[in-house]
Design a protein around this nucleic acid. Structure first.
Lengths: 350, 350
DNA sequence: CGTATTACTTATAACGTTACAAATGTCGGA
DNA sequence: TCCGACATTTGTAACGTTATAAGTAATACG
């Protein structure tokens, strides 16, 4: 597995082997070597085999910089990672899934962090201007996302995690948050809850709309009242949510059901209610969207609907690869279906 | 913020501006332009200013590929990210810290995932062979880590998260796990615990030794018995730890104190004990190493010693930058000091 | 007034690769 | 024997940048 020692012929002993080295050894022209390595059918098969053999023997590896300079292709995919607070291990899972999708290709993964409070368009512009990648992936999409507009204008391949509401099509992967919210309300009603509250992400994100719509549809259908906390969102810090929950828990018509589209918001709420002397199962229930096993360990009886982030990463990778191959569509649009399999009711009257 | 429109002179209207474009506009030679952009003192200041002005006006951005090809420098730092299970949000925090350290430089961050079960040397070899970066950062160091040996042999700049036991020096950032374990034992004793158990990482990691040494030192000093679970490690899956805890909790001399160098192991153990009818505070206590606010929400009374992963990322970045600047040392070696500030005892007899 | 020195600027070549157009050799058919 | 068609290989130039060495003009010095 270690780098093989270079051959000891005078011409190519010291420095690292290039196509020129192979050309000298085989007696072929550099052009021929290049095309043989690319698997060009116009090169005799015997030659291709010989070149590849020599290449392997001397430990030739193509120079990315040179290929990039010549072809204009970076062979890099950029993931813009923003500080998701609400989902435990979001970044890791997404990266892992994406890496799997790219593993069989010759694309590399480049992660550009989106700093908290920074303008989301910045990293995108930077990558496009400096041609740091051939394709971009980002999340926390907005209905009329500036980044989508920018990338489309520049005909730069991309895939988003989350939909937009532009008239035109683009590649995305999203989770059916509408269904998640709708089903969550029903589940909480099954448990006898009527004052059902939903924790929403900031309203400028597209998935705010989806969650809200699913929630409102169920609320109206069931004739319930609508509870949406003021000043609290999925992006609020845990202590902030905790404080709010503690306060609201002590009010007369405190919510008795919570829809938490993220794990951390649930933890803060449960803590707040506990502090106010209210217990889960007795005084309230919650449905949580989770993407790790963590909640199951905290309390095995929590109703949770899982979102497979690693799968999302893999799908994003696959969709982006297709987009880079066919930049003018058709665009792959994938919606992850929430896996609604709640345990039977009677066992969970905790 | 949008890319400025290129000038409309016939010579350089369509394609993206290069140094050649600037040369044509200013009437200078390309070489002069190049050196002016580099801030070479030998170029008249007036010229430098003029070149930079034009460069900005036409929206010139240097071509990374060309620079890389010519100079051999990639201006990339590679973080090899392995699937840490025990720390919530490890990857995100490390990346964020690292990104901050690199923000002011012209280095980019490249994340190469280490697949579960894959040979750790593989991504390192790959990066070095293909010259994908100028420096490497990795974690989960082993006492005689193959990667350290390999990188040293190839004189490739790197910084590790965790120490090794090689005779020679290299740059690293580590957490004082020895102190963490030692202080944890003392804390649990303060709470009246005597059967103190430590959850250790797999023994091939260096921080296994450090934790073990700190633990053993305290155990011997205090004349306690030593409890180390067989077949369970920090890397075990949560359900596995849960099962083990549930079983052990029912034994006669079940541990009454736990040292958890990761959040997830604590959650699984607490769950196991709970399932066996044993409560935290009453039947056992734990000291947890945590790197997020999550545990505080789950139970505000948990004794936890925090490890600042984001700071670790920033330190790793800073140390690597120094190493790349002075490849032959001196090597920056940073140890993060655990912040041992437990709440007063009486308030926490839960 | 000629030469050394300083302050700049520049021509040339190269990094490793690939696109393009052109060249070479081989073979079957007229 | 000659021609075209085919299979295969090759020379040249270029991608955008920078290192090297060499150039020019102006100034200082004796």
């Amino acid at each position: 597995m270690l780098t093989p020692k270079p051959l000891n012929s005078p011409a190519h002993s010291t420095s690292k082997p290039t196509q020129k080295t192979i050309a000298e050894i085989t007696g072929l022209a550099v052009t021929t070597v290049s095309r043989a390595l690319q698997g060009d059918e116009k090169i005799a098969q015997a030659t291709r085999l010989r070149v590849n053999k020599v290449a392997e023997d001397i430990g030739y590896v193509p120079d990315h910089a040179a290929q990039r300079l010549r072809t204009g292709k970076t062979k890099v995919v950029s993931l813009i990672l923003d500080p998701h607070k609400e989902i435990l291990g979001f970044g890791n899972s997404l990266i892992t899934g994406l890496a799997h999708a790219l593993a069989e290709t010759d694309y590399h993964l480049n992660v550009t962090p989106q700093f908290l409070g920074g303008d989301p368009i910045e990293p995108v512009e930077y990558i496009v201007r400096n041609k740091l990648a051939d394709g971009i992936i980002f999340s926390r999409t907005r209905p009329f996302d500036e980044r989508v507009r920018f990338l489309r204008e520049h005909s730069f391949p991309f895939t988003t995690h989350g939909r937009t509401e532009f008239g035109y099509q683009h590649s995305y992967v999203d989770y059916d948050n509408e269904k998640f919210a709708y089903e969550s309300v029903l589940r909480l009603m099954q448990k006898g809850r009527r004052r059902i509250c939903v924790i929403l992400p900031p309203s400028h994100f597209t998935f705010h709309q989806h969650l809200n719509y699913g929630y409102m549809r169920a609320i109206r259908q069931e004739g319930l009242e609508c509870y949406k906390p003021e000043g609290i969102s999925l992006d609020s810090d845990m202590p902030e949510i905790f404080e709010w929950a503690q306060t609201i828990a002590r009010t007369a018509d405190a919510p008795d059901g919570f829809i938490c589209p993220g794990e951390t918001s649930f933890l803060a709420i449960a803590n707040g209610y506990r502090q106010a002397g209210k217990g889960r199962g007795r005084d309230f229930n919650a449905v949580v969207k989770s993407s790790s096993q963590t909640l199951h360990q905290i309390d095995p009886h929590i109703d949770n609907i899982s979102e497979d982030i690693q799968e999302a990463g893999a799908l994003l990778g696959a969709n982006l690869l297709k987009t880079m191959l066919h930049p003018d569509g058709p665009f792959e649009q994938t919606i992850q279906d929430p896996d609604i399999t709640f345990p039977a009711l009677k066992a969970y009257q905790d």
